[in-house]
């Protein structure tokens, strides 16, 4: 990447922007995360179809859960790579040696993972809408997806950093992630079910409020604590 020479070092937001551009460049050149995620989620949807027989009466009951389980399982692919890739290439030490705020590194990684989840959903939501004949194009669903993505990415990114150096990291990440995501899962599934059923905004809004609160708490606490997990 060629960047104009900067007189002063970039601020917090500038650092996030640069790091996010790096993440996206790496992903765009390697294409090793977004496409496998989408293919995996599509395969999961098909597996669910044969497990639950997603038709008729039970469809609207089961579909929100099926959709989110597929998204969360696919997110493990992105989250697992997020820091282990840096550790394998030894580039994490380089990042930490540079004058970057660890909080900015965390937030850039969260943003990159949110973008990967958005790409994933841009593929599987239309796919689910077509395959299962669901009314998925609701504005409230878009908001639910975004808040859910931030929740998954904010918890998952710090756990990715924590597990990157551990033994059995492939097992540790989901073991730690899923229990901590339970509040997110409850809220997104309820909100998605209401959105699919064209439920009133007043019913959906409390779930989105819980989700937003959880996202903010985790983003805030994790960006403060992140330096503890990566320091040498």
């Amino acid at each position: 990447m060629s960047r104009p020479q900067q007189a002063s070092p970039p601020g917090y937001l500038g650092q996030i922007r640069i790091l996010l551009a790096k993440e996206l460049t790496v992903e765009f050149r390697s294409r090793e995360t977004a496409i496998p995620m989408a293919v995996f989620a599509a395969a999961a949807l098909i597996a669910f179809q044969f497990s639950f027989d997603l038709r008729g009466g039970t469809l609207n009951l089961v579909a929100p859960g099926v959709l989110w389980v597929a998204i969360i399982f696919a997110s493990l692919l992105a989250l697992g790579r997020s820091f282990s890739r840096e550790v394998e290439r030894g580039s994490l030490d380089g990042l930490l040696a540079s004058p970057i705020d660890p909080g900015a590194l965390y937030l850039a990684k969260v943003s990159a993972n949110v973008i990967l989840l958005v790409v994933l959903e841009a593929v599987i939501i239309p796919l689910a809408a077509i395959l299962f004949n669901l009314q998925l194009f609701q504005p409230t669903l878009l908001l639910t997806l975004l808040l859910g993505n931030i929740g998954i990415a904010s918890v998952g990114t710090i756990l990715s950093a924590i597990s990157a150096r551990a033994r059995a990291r492939e097992a540790l990440l989901p073991i730690m992630l899923l229990p901590l995501l339970v509040p997110v899962i409850i809220a997104v599934v309820r909100a998605t079910a209401l959105a699919i059923d064209n439920g009133p905004w007043g019913d959906i809004q409390p779930w989105l409020a819980i989700l937003a609160a959880y996202d903010l708490v985790f983003l805030f606490v994790s960006s403060l604590l992140f330096y503890v997990t990566v320091e040498k």
């Binding site: 710090i158 924590i162 229990p179 901590l180 708490v217 985790f218 604590l225 503890v228 997990t229 320091e231």
Partner: peptide, 14 residues
């Protein structure tokens, strides 16, 4: 220990 401390703090939400 440091990473465990972070999990110990974040996990308290439960």
């Amino acid at each position: 220990y440091r990473s465990a401390a972070v999990i110990g703090i974040l996990g308290f939400v439960s």
